[in-house]
Design a binder for these strands. Structure first.
Length: 486
DNA sequence: AAAAAAT
């Protein structure tokens, strides 16, 4: 089915009927682990050179064809089942899930042909009933997998498959850490569910005001913690007892003490006992991981290991300066190089972000600013312009550190290094920030601006944590920068 | 420190 001829490629694009069986002929081998975990490893050992060459050609073509993570080069998935004796499901096609035709149509219309690695493993526990398992209740899940591996589509599919469009009340609830991410995920839900005529989505976000006493008729709700909590409790727009699926996107921040723990847990306590809980994130710091297992009853656990690879596609540099003004001038020097595609510049505070955007404008560089202190209407407009490519450079805070998916972003600049409230390096945020680039296996560039001995020390600790060299960059050497940016 | 918020 797969071929290099152009006519066939066009057919594939139009019909979305691509069969990828050729790429995954090898059966996966599973071997039991000491603590009941199953570690699956793709075995490529007996492939001939020709086969490998064919695989490589096929993969590069596919990547060009379809903007998705169809071909996942991940080599290790760790699955820890709630019941280690039950069979280990792993779906190789969306058909196996026996989705409603309207939903399958939505999946294919988005350009997904075959489940990504995380989807292969994460979907079965969400679909046990459909797969004809003896299990009667939907299973809970904690899933960790790197940026751009298809987490969003996995939990959106889980929600859409369980929703009953005929029932005009909220049945699925998804929480996002920020306004912008809620909008983005909402778009995915809308796209994937667009062939279900009756299906509606409500946005429980800042600025979305409803009349008192009103009830929400939409079957799915996506929102940010504060608004969702209000809608469930004092405003009573949502009856939390009727929620069947509860999703925490960027789950680690959603349950972290320094994050949205209070509100998320208060919402969770209002849900019925048999409500399915799905936690997804690219990172789970140790203490948060323990807490997750405490709040999610009998979870299935999926970990997808690809940290090295993520960092392989993203080149990391640092620029040595003595103070904030020097950082600003260094940034001006590389502005031309970073605007070849799109760039995101992260600052520690809203104030710095505002200042930096102002200074860059004064120098005649066009930049957009996005931070949490802005009005929601303005925030929606800015992120939209950035998505459309009307803005090339976005100066922002940690509000955009996670989840924001703009394909053209090829450079991430840490104008300030990510640190937590105690001033220690924030490794999780670092990985999330630089994960805004290098998406879909593309190459990405991260530049860290260092302005003191203290921040150099923080950078060194980040470098040690990921065990990955961060090289020095001379911002006066424009040739070198252009070369890297290209 | 940022984010969340009909406070």
């Amino acid at each position: 089915v797969f071929s290099n001829s152009e006519s066939e490629i066009i057919n594939l694009e139009e019909g979305f009927s691509l069969q990828l069986s050729n790429l995954h002929l090898k059966e996966e081998k599973t071997k039991p682990n000491t603590n009941g975990a199953i570690v699956k490893t793709d075995d490529n050992a007996e492939k001939t050179e020709d086969e490998e060459k064919e695989d490589r050609a096929a993969q590069s073509l596919l990547n060009k064809l379809i903007r998705s993570n169809l071909v996942d080069t991940t080599n290790q998935v760790e699955v820890l089942q709630r019941d280690p004796t039950s069979p280990l499901y792993s779906v190789k096609s969306f058909e196996e899930l026996r989705l409603k035709p309207q939903l399958l149509q939505g999946v294919y219309a988005m350009g997904f042909n075959r489940p990504s690695k995380i989807q292969e493993n994460a979907l079965p526990p969400c679909f046990l009933l459909l797969l004809g398992s003896a299990e009667d209740s939907p299973q809970n899940l904690i899933a960790q997998s790197q940026s751009g591996t298809g987490k969003t589509a996995a939990f959106v599919l889980a929600m859409l498959s369980r929703v009953e469009p005929g029932n005009k009340y909220p049945q699925c609830l998804c929480l996002s850490p920020t306004y912008e991410l809620a909008l983005q995920t909402g778009k995915v839900i809308e796209q994937m569910g667009k062939f279900h005529p009756e299906l509606r989505l409500a946005y429980a976000v800042r600025g979305n005001k409803l009349e008192r006493g009103q009830k929400i008729s939409e079957q799915i709700v996506i929102g940010t913690p504060g608004t969702v909590l209000d809608w469930c409790s004092k405003l009573k727009f949502i009856d939390p007892k009727k929620i069947k699926v509860f999703v925490l996107d960027e789950a680690d921040v959603m349950i972290a003490t320094q994050g949205h723990q209070d509100q998320s847990i208060r919402i969770q306590r209002m849900l019925p006992r048999d409500c399915q809980m799905l936690l997804f994130s690219a990172t789970f710091e140790d203490s948060v991981w323990k807490f997750a297992q405490k709040v999610v009853p009998d979870p299935n656990i999926i970990k997808l290991k690809r940290e090295e690879e993520t960092l392989d596609t993203i080149k990391q540099y640092y620029v040595l300066c003595n103070n904030r003004d020097e950082k600003f001038h260094a940034l001006c020097n590389i502005y031309g190089a970073i605007t070849i595609a799109q760039a995101m510049i992260f600052c520690h505070t809203r104030k710095t972000a505002g200042w930096l955007a102002g200074e860059l404008s004064k120098e005649g560089h066009q930049v957009a600013l996005l931070s949490g202190e802005m009005m929601v209407e303005q925030r929606a407009a800015v992120i939209e312009r950035f998505r459309e490519g009307k803005e090339k450079v976005l100066v922002t805070t940690n509000v955009c550190a996670r989840g924001i998916d703009v394909e053209q972003v090829s450079v991430v600049i840490n104008f300030d290094l990510p640190v937590d409230k105690d001033g220690n390096p924030d490794n999780e945020t670092y990985l999330h920030r630089i994960g805004r680039t290098g998406r879909f296996g593309k190459r990405g560039l991260a530049v860290n601006m260092v302005d003191s001995k203290h921040s150099m020390n923080i950078l060194n600790r980040i470098q040690e944590h990921f065990n990955k060299k961060i090289e020095k960059l001379d911002t006066d050497d424009l040739d070198e920068i252009e070369k890297i940016a290209n």
